[in-house]
Design a protein around this nucleic acid. Sequence first.
DNA 1: GCCAACGTTGGC
DNA 2: GCCAACGTTGGC
Length: 137
Amino acid sequence: MAHWLIKSEPGHWSCRDQMKAGRKGTCWNGVRNHSAKLNLMAMRVGEQAFFYHSNEGKAIVGIVEIIKPYYPDPFDPTGKFGMADVRAVEALKKPVSLDAIKADPRLAKMALVTNARLSVQPVSESEWDIVRAEGGL
DNA sequence: GCCAACGTTGGC
DNA sequence: GCCAACGTTGGC
């Protein structure tokens, strides 16, 4: 089972907002490039992803689950991009900051570090476990 | 098909 | 708010 990391600006859509959306979940859109789109298309129902706050906070703050796989975004004027639906699973007890990730050599290969602008990225099994543990889960 | 110009993202 | 990094666009 693959794991992922998705980004959101908390001023626009935060992990707290995602929690409030409850079990029904919400669509997650905003993909603007093709690597992110390919990752989004590779997601399967039931897989989990970290929820990362960019700009404000700059930390992994929670975990979401994919509840609907990739589908085209009917509001995308270019017709190129799509979205998936996710729902909140749980918040980390302690956010894992970008600084902490950069400071941990085991996490140095995360796309968050090497390709900061990619908004949907895969997370390896070991990275997933390390970040979960760092987050107090 | 190359590459310069432009727009967007995101850390600082 | 600034600017570096990167992806995309469009002229040639």
